[in-house]
Amino acid sequence: MRFLATFQTLDFLDTLISLCAAFVLGMLIGAERQYRTRAAGLRTNVLVAVGAAAFVDLAMHLKGVDGAVHVMAYVVSGIGFLGAGVIMKEGMNVRGLNTAATLWSSAAVGCCAGADMVAQAVALTVFVIAGNTLLRPLVNAINRIPFDERSSEATYSVRLTAASAAADSLRDHLEQRLEAADYPVAEIEVETSDLAPDKVEIVATLVSTSVEPKELDVVVADMGRRPGVDHATWETSTKD
């Protein structure tokens, strides 16, 4: 059998150490995720770390350092597809970005372990866990700071609900009113509703700039008094 002819005890022990290190370190990262009931928990992070370690270790034994580097590049791109699967968009909110980043980091830990850089894998694990735990109080403190629209990097839009018959004139007037207030318009869309065929929603997206909320309130109030307008409002959303 070719296995008996090619089996090397030291090589096998080297592989075993790499896989065990990836398993333990991936388990530490995954345990924190499991405790917080994230989509990718204990088992997922362990499998990502062990799988990455196995691929890199195999390449190391077959092609040396050059082979390991090539495999790492594929691991990085492959984990990108896996991470995309846990990212979900719900309206204007995006969930799962932190989980995807953690999976990416678990793969990096596995790559270090597979490349026989166990000390670096341990150090990276410490940083990953610290990022997911020690930074939480700082994140919560920042989130409690009152939101300042004037200094935020965000996308602003003005929405009008109006009669479809007046859509064209209201669209032009809204664009003129915003530009007169020094808020240039990036685009204006007119959206129809299947539930109310005689109504449309006019959405004006502003060019990214600093905004004074009171000024937009004045524009919205003025548009709300226009004939044919049922409702007028403005809203903000983050760019990322």
Rank of each mutant, 00 (worst) to 15 (best):
V46S: 09
L42K: 11
L47T: 00
A49W: 03
A68R: 03
L62H: 12
A49N: 02
D66Q: 14
H61C: 09
V46Q: 12
D57V: 10
D66M: 11
A39I: 13
A54E: 07
A68D: 00
H61W: 09
A54Q: 09
A54P: 07
A68G: 05
H61F: 12
L47N: 00
V56R: 12
L62D: 07
V65M: 11
A53Q: 06
V46L: 13
K63C: 02
A53R: 08
A54D: 06
V50H: 06
R38N: 04
L47H: 00
A49Y: 04
V50W: 05
A59V: 12
D66I: 08
K63A: 13
L58G: 13
K63G: 10
L58D: 06
A59R: 14
G67A: 09
G41M: 03
A39P: 14
D57N: 14
K63Q: 09
A59P: 10
L58C: 08
K63T: 05
G51D: 02
L42Q: 10
A40P: 00
D57I: 10
A59S: 15
A40N: 00
M60S: 07
D57M: 15
L47P: 01
A40G: 01
F55Y: 07
V56Q: 10
V56E: 07
G67V: 10
V65L: 13
N45V: 02
V65P: 06
A40D: 00
N45L: 08
G67H: 11
R43K: 06
V46P: 09
L62Y: 11
L62S: 11
R43S: 01
H70P: 08
D66Y: 11
D57T: 14
G64V: 12
V69S: 13
G64A: 08
F55I: 09
D66N: 14
G51S: 02
